[in-house]
Simulated scan of single mutants.
Amino acid sequence: MTVSVVLADDQEMVRIGFAMILGAASGIDVVGQAADGIEAVELIARTRPDVALLDIRMPRLDGIEVCRRVTAAGTRAVIVTTFGEPDYVDAALDAGASGFLLKDSGPELLVAAVRAAATGDALISPALTVDLLARRHRPADSSPKLEELTSRERDVALCVARGRTNAEIADELVISLGTVKTHLGAITRRLGVRNRVEIAAAVWAAGGTVL
């Protein structure tokens, strides 16, 4: 299945760069670009993409409000911005964003965030994950139990909670990327969570001192 994407950013060079990265990825099709928030809402309404990549600070309408409007209409949104302030992250997630990336996160995470959003998952820049979970983790008595994981699965879960990417987990634990993905799948099933953000939340709730 091809994932259709709309890009919205007031910087043309940023849009061009993102379009090149996503265009080179298999199964992703950039169907439109917008230079401001109002244009983005109108373009997304016309093209009905699977995912919208949105900057926060745009003329006429900011990315948070665009996110709120388009997610209500069924398009999943990922915020991609230079600004990682906690208020922005919280506002984006509250507006229904399926991801929040810093613009320097790199091509791999950009593609991963689009694919995650298209499947109903969520991806947050590793640089922001620890601070986010420190503010939002659930009480321990309502959280999945890490005791249900194998020793190696706990190692992977701890790395996720520290904001590591899959490649960094593979390097740290000296395992293959495929093995990392297999462990992540097992962890989500055992804990009954949906994505790596919730995996990290479970680790925090069980005692964030591991971070």
Rank of each mutant, 00 (worst) to 15 (best):
residue 109 L to T: 08
residue 182 T to H: 14
residue 101 L to M: 13
residue 150 T to A: 13
residue 1 M to K: 02
residue 33 Q to L: 07
residue 93 L to Q: 01
residue 111 V to L: 03
residue 135 R to G: 00
residue 138 R to A: 14
residue 9 D to C: 12
residue 181 K to R: 15
residue 207 G to K: 03
residue 104 D to Y: 06
residue 18 F to N: 10
residue 153 E to H: 00
residue 10 D to H: 02
residue 4 S to K: 00
residue 177 L to T: 00
residue 27 G to I: 10
residue 166 N to K: 09
residue 62 D to M: 03
residue 33 Q to G: 06
residue 106 G to H: 12
residue 104 D to I: 00
residue 165 T to Y: 09
residue 181 K to T: 10
residue 133 L to F: 05
residue 129 T to P: 11
residue 191 L to M: 01
residue 146 L to T: 07
residue 83 F to R: 04
residue 11 Q to A: 02
residue 145 K to S: 14
residue 187 I to W: 11
residue 63 G to H: 01
residue 100 F to W: 08
residue 209 T to P: 09
residue 182 T to G: 13
residue 137 H to P: 11
residue 180 V to Y: 02
residue 131 D to N: 13
residue 3 V to K: 04
residue 174 V to N: 15
residue 194 R to S: 15
residue 32 G to W: 10
residue 174 V to S: 15
residue 89 V to Q: 01
residue 160 V to N: 00
residue 209 T to D: 15
residue 166 N to M: 13
residue 39 E to G: 04
residue 201 A to W: 12
residue 193 V to C: 13
residue 38 I to T: 15
residue 23 G to R: 06
residue 211 L to H: 09
residue 198 E to F: 03
residue 135 R to I: 09
residue 88 Y to P: 04
residue 126 P to H: 03
residue 127 A to D: 14
residue 70 V to D: 12
residue 185 G to C: 01
residue 76 R to C: 07
residue 134 A to C: 04
residue 184 L to A: 05
residue 93 L to K: 03
residue 164 R to N: 13
residue 189 R to T: 14
residue 7 L to E: 13
residue 171 D to I: 11
residue 20 M to V: 10
residue 175 I to P: 02
residue 185 G to R: 00
residue 87 D to N: 06
residue 140 A to Y: 07
residue 32 G to P: 05
residue 175 I to M: 14
residue 205 A to T: 08
residue 65 E to I: 09
residue 211 L to R: 09
residue 67 C to W: 06
residue 126 P to C: 09
residue 58 M to P: 11
residue 176 S to P: 10
residue 9 D to P: 11
residue 155 D to L: 06
residue 51 V to R: 02
residue 152 R to K: 09
residue 48 R to M: 06
residue 60 R to N: 15
residue 191 L to D: 07
residue 71 T to G: 04
residue 172 E to S: 09
residue 127 A to P: 06
residue 118 A to R: 12
residue 164 R to L: 15
residue 193 V to G: 13
residue 95 A to V: 07
residue 104 D to F: 00
residue 5 V to I: 03
residue 92 A to S: 04
residue 89 V to C: 11
residue 53 L to A: 11
residue 40 A to T: 02
residue 203 V to F: 09
residue 125 S to T: 11
residue 133 L to W: 01
residue 155 D to E: 15
residue 147 E to S: 15
residue 167 A to H: 12
residue 132 L to C: 08
residue 42 E to F: 11
residue 141 D to T: 08
residue 77 A to R: 10
residue 89 V to R: 05
residue 157 A to H: 01
residue 208 G to R: 00
residue 199 I to H: 09
residue 17 G to S: 11
residue 167 A to C: 00
residue 84 G to V: 08
residue 147 E to V: 09
